[in-house]
C-alpha cells in the first residue's frame, strides 16, 4: 500500500490534535506516515503518532527548518517525497501549512487543493466554499496530490501502528535560507483549550463593550470547558488579544458548538466559523445577520442572558 505523508504540527513539543486527524484521514487512503520537520522530536511524541496510526515517522531534526520561513520545510518535504514516493501529502490548513503546500506544489510539479474537509479513497477532496454555500469535489490530476485539510474535519482515531522512526538528513539550500526568523513573540496562553481545535468556542464581539465585558464571556467558556474567541471589532479595540480573532483573517474554527455573543455576523467573521456544527447566538438586534446561522438564538442583552446561562450550566454540573 502506498504511503500517505502527513506533516506533523506540534506546540511545545507535543503533537497537535490536527496532526492526529491527518493520520486518521491518511489511514483511509493508504499507509499513514508522519513527517516531523525541525528539532524537538521526542519518543513521547513518537508514541502518540504511532498510537494514532503512523507506520513510519520521518524525523528531519534540523534547526534550519524552523529558523527560516517556510522554504526549508518545503525543500525537506520534497526530498522525503522523492524517496518515499507517497500517493498523497496531507498538511493542516493553517496559514503556514498552506504556504508549505504552495511551495511544495511548485517544486514537485504537483496540483494542490486547500481547505479540504474530507478526502475519499480515490483521493477526491471535498471542499466547502463560498462561506459553506457550495460543496465542491475536486481532484489533483498532475503530480502527487498535495492536500491541506481543515482542522476538526475528521475525528482522530486510536489505531496502533509500528511508528518506525526514519531519520532523514535534509540539505537546506542557501536560497531557502533567505527569510530569517530573528525573534519569536509568544502571546500569553491561558489554561483554556486551543481555539482552532476546541470542541466548543464561546466568542464575543463589539457588543461585549470593553475588556471587562470579556469576563462574562470567559465565565461562560469555563463553565463549558470551551475556548474563547473574538470578532475583529473586539480584537482591534484591544479588548481581547489578536490571536483569538475568529474569521477570514483570524482563526478558522469548526467546533461542535459555537456561541456568538454581541457579534453581528459580518461576512469576514462568518468565513471563520461557518462550518461550526451547532451555532447559538445572543444579540440584542433581531436583524443581525448572524441569526441566519443560528440553530438557537436569543434576542436580548448578553449581560443578562449570558450570566444566567453560565449559572444554569454550573448548577446542572452540580
Amino acid at each position: 500500500m502506498a504511503e500517505i505523508l502527513t506533516v506533523v504540527e506540534a506546540a511545545d513539543g507535543s503533537v497537535k490534535k490536527v496532526s492526529l486527524e491527518l493520520l486518521a484521514l491518511a489511514g483511509k487512503l493508504g499507509e499513514p506516515a508522519a513527517v516531523w520537520l525541525g528539532p524537538g522530536y521526542s519518543d513521547a511524541a513518537g508514541a502518540v503518532l504511532a498510537e494514532h496510526g503512523a507506520a513510519k515517522i520521518y524525523v528531519a531534526d534540523n534547526a534550519d527548518l524552523v529558523d527560516y520561513v517556510v522554504a526549508p520545510k518545503a525543500e525537506a518535504l520534497a526530498q522525503i517525497m522523492q524517496s518515499a514516493s507517497p500517493a498523497a501529502v496531507l498538511i493542516a490548513s493553517s496559514a503556514e501549512g498552506k504556504e508549505i503546500a504552495a511551495r511544495l506544489a511548485v517544486k514537485t510539479g504537483s496540483g494542490v487543493i486547500t481547505d479540504a474537509v474530507d478526502v475519499a479513497a480515490d483521493l477526491t477532496a471535498t471542499q466547502s466554499v463560498f462561506g459553506g454555500s457550495t460543496i465542491v469535489q475536486s481532484k489533483v490530476t498532475t503530480g502527487t496530490p498535495i492536500i491541506t485539510v481543515r482542522v476538526n474535519s475528521i475525528a482522530p482515531e486510536v489505531s496502533p501502528a509500528a511508528g518506525t522512526r526514519v531519520d532523514v538528513s535534509v540539505d537546506v539550500s542557501s536560497s531557502a535560507k533567505t527569510a530569517k526568523v530573528t525573534d519569536r513573540t509568544v502571546a500569553a496562553k491561558g489554561g483554556r483549550p486551543e481555539l482552532a481545535e476546541a470542541a466548543i468556542v464561546v466568542s464575543g464581539g463589539r457588543g461585549v463593550n470593553g475588556a471587562d465585558g470579556f469576563g462574562v464571556i470567559e465565565a461562560l467558556a469555563d463553565s463549558l470547558g470551551a475556548a474563547v474567541g473574538a470578532s475583529r471589532a473586539a480584537t482591534d479595540a484591544g479588548w481581547y488579544p489578536h490571536q483569538y480573532q475568529v474569521g477570514q483573517t483570524g482563526k478558522t474554527v469548526s467546533p461542535q458548538l459555537y456561541i456568538a455573543n454581541g457579534i453581528s455576523g459580518a461576512i469576514q467573521h462568518r468565513a471563520g466559523m461557518q462550518t461550526s456544527k451547532t451555532v447559538i447566538v445572543v444579540n440584542k438586534d433581531p436583524e443581525a445577520p448572524i441569526f441566519e446561522l443560528a440553530d438557537f438564538g436569543v434576542v436580548g442583552d448578553l449581560f443578562s442572558v449570558v450570566p444566567q446561562l453560565t449559572d444554569e450550566i454550573n448548577k446542572r454540573k452540580g
Partner: peptide
Amino acid sequence: GTVVTDEGDGGTKIVEF
C-alpha cells in the same frame, strides 16, 4: 433555527436547548 426574545429567561432557554 429557533429564535426567541429574552423575557428574563433567555439563558435558561439556551440551557434547555
